[in-house]
């Protein structure tokens, strides 16, 4: 059983969660069409440590997990509040 450390509920079976993809910072409202197209339609799909949105389904609690896509290791998890303006977790 793979375990996900949920910031609200503690360590839980990964089956209680759903991953909803990369954490991405939207461009400014007046950004170019290219910038918006990049944001809406393209994903980095990086081999390495990525930041992703995860949701604990029984509580619908959303949080961020840092995961190494090469090893599927979960590095750490934290809430959106801990994300600074640059998009990095504190």
């Amino acid at each position: 059983m793979k375990i996900m450390p949920c910031p609200l509920n503690g360590p839980r079976n990964i089956q209680e969660f759903i991953c909803r993809g990369e954490v991405r910072i939207p461009p400014a409202a007046d950004a170019s069409a290219e910038a918006w197209a990049e944001y809406l339609f393209y994903r980095e799909n990086k081999a390495g440590i990525v930041r992703e949105w995860w949701c604990h389904l029984p509580t619908t609690f959303w949080f961020i997990a840092e995961r190494d896509t090469r090893t599927d290791e979960i590095i750490r998890t934290y809430t959106f509040d801990a994300l600074d303006e640059s998009g990095s977790g504190r």
Partner: peptide
């Protein structure tokens, strides 16, 4: 209390 899954069903 725990909010978890019981028999694959979300439960309190």
């Amino acid at each position: 209390l725990a909010q978890t899954q019981v028999a694959r069903t979300s439960a309190i």
